[in-house]
Structure formats: structure tokens, C-alpha cells
Amino acid sequence: MLKPGKENEASDALEMSMAAVAAAMSDPSRMKMLCALMDGRAWTATELSAVAEIASSTASAHLTRLVNARLITCLSQGRHRYYRLAGQPIAGLIETLMGVSWQSVTPPTSRTPHHLRAARSCYDHLAGELAVHIYDFMTQAGWLTPDGSSLTDVGRVNLAQMGIFITPHPRRKACCACLDWSERRFHLGGEAGAALFQHCLSSGWLTRVPGFREVSVTAKGRRAFSQHFAIHSLAQN
């Protein structure tokens, strides 16, 4: 048990750390970079400077600030350096901040761009209307526990039949309900959400739109989502 003085020191350290994270995210250029990295891929400094519409030298300083705040990581491969988000908790923080920000600038009727509202990546899992419909189906069909915190045996069997296998002892949450910022309803996160999204991509059900978080549903995907999740009203891309 910490002594009173030690408790105060721990509290101060936590609050200072929170303030440092907030400060690192407070610049619009840095936020543009973080939002771009929400597609789950690694970007070069040149690509991120273009997204933020700033000079390369300025982008370098911003990226250093984000690395120091542990919001992103830098990966070196040969002569190239790539940047990506520091993990799912950071992606969750940004997604939540997006939702709070949209609430402050829009009326109750969502003005979220339709292409992002329909289907998009949320770091390593699927978000948007499509993801919400999948989550609703899985809940109603008994694939998930009522709170969305884990898969049921029925859910594991059905995912396995699709070729989606969940790691028995993942280092992150096996399954969780993520509040979708554009729909204000839940979509599937955690290890199961990531595995489902990767399967959709590798199976050709979804394709990424280069340089954006938007994903498109293919004709094969429309058939698959209708067959597996009873989703019959996906628009033609």
C-alpha cells in the first residue's frame, strides 16, 4: 500500500502523463497524421506530410513529437522509415475523440460522409454501418455474450466454418463491443474483430481504398454478407 505522499506523487505523474498525451494531440497537423494512420497501415513521413499539407521538415518535428508521446511507433526497413499507431488502445482513443468531436459540430442527424459511414477501417477491425449490422446479427444469433465481451461456443463454431479462427490465448481482448462513432451503436472489436476484418480482405469480400480508411464491398462480399450475416441491402460499389 502506498503512503499518502507516494499516492500524491503517483497521481501527479498520471495527470502529467495525460496532459502530455493531450498536448501531443492538440495540433491539427498531428491530428491529420493520426487520423490517416487509423487505416492500420504504416505510412512514410513523405506520405504523412502530404496528408497534413505541411513541409517535410515540419512533418519530421511533428512525427518526433508523436513518437515521444508514444502515440505512434517508427519502423525502419532498409533506407526507409515507416510510422504507424502504437496499438489498438491509441486507435480506440482517436476513434472516441472523433465521435466526441462530431457531436460538438453536428446536429443529431449525422453529417458523416456517406463513404465513411457505410464501411471503413478502425485500425485493425471494421467499422461503420456494415460492421454494426454484423455485430447486431452476431448478438441476435447468439454468437456473442450479451455484453459483447466474448464469443460463445456457437460463435466460435460459425466463425471457424467461415475459416476464421481465434487465437486461444490472445495478448489482447478476445472480443469486445466498440461504440461506433458514426452510428452510435456497437461494432465488433478485439481479436475477433481483427480476425474477421482480415478474413474479409483476404477473401475478397472487401477492398481498401488506397490512402483512405474507406473500404468497398465487392460483389463477392455482398453475397458472403448475405449468406453469413443476413445482410441483404448493401449498395453496389
Rank of each mutant, 00 (worst) to 15 (best):
A177L: 05
V67D: 02
S104G: 15
A141K: 15
W102I: 07
A69F: 00
L63V: 00
S76C: 00
G221Q: 04
A230V: 05
A177T: 07
D136Q: 14
H125T: 06
S150K: 05
R171A: 00
P210D: 12
L126I: 08
I164F: 01
G211V: 02
I90V: 12
P113Q: 14
L201Q: 10
N158C: 11
S76Q: 05
A20Y: 03
C74G: 07
Q88M: 05
H115A: 02
M31I: 12
I134N: 06
G211H: 08
H115W: 03
T145P: 02
S202F: 01
W181Y: 10
A69M: 03
C122N: 15
C175D: 04
A141I: 13
Y135F: 15
R172G: 04
P108V: 13
A127G: 12
Y123I: 14
M1C: 08
L126G: 00
T167W: 08
F229H: 09
F197W: 13
R172F: 04
I231Y: 04
C74M: 07
Q103C: 09
H80L: 11
L130Y: 09
E9M: 08
S29L: 10
M162L: 04
K32I: 00
L188F: 04
R156E: 13
Y135S: 12
I72H: 10
E129P: 06
G92F: 01
R65F: 12
R70V: 03
M138R: 05
S56H: 05
A91E: 07
H80A: 12
G92H: 12
L63P: 00
E15C: 08
L71T: 06
V157M: 09
A119C: 10
W205E: 11
S26R: 06
K32D: 01
V51D: 14
E191M: 13
S121K: 08
V51E: 15
T73V: 04
S203I: 09
E214G: 05
T145M: 00
R41K: 11
G211Q: 02
Q88G: 05
F229A: 03
S149D: 13
F165W: 11
A55F: 08
M16L: 10
K173F: 11
L151M: 14
R120N: 14
H187R: 06
Q140R: 02
A42R: 02
P108R: 15
G5L: 11
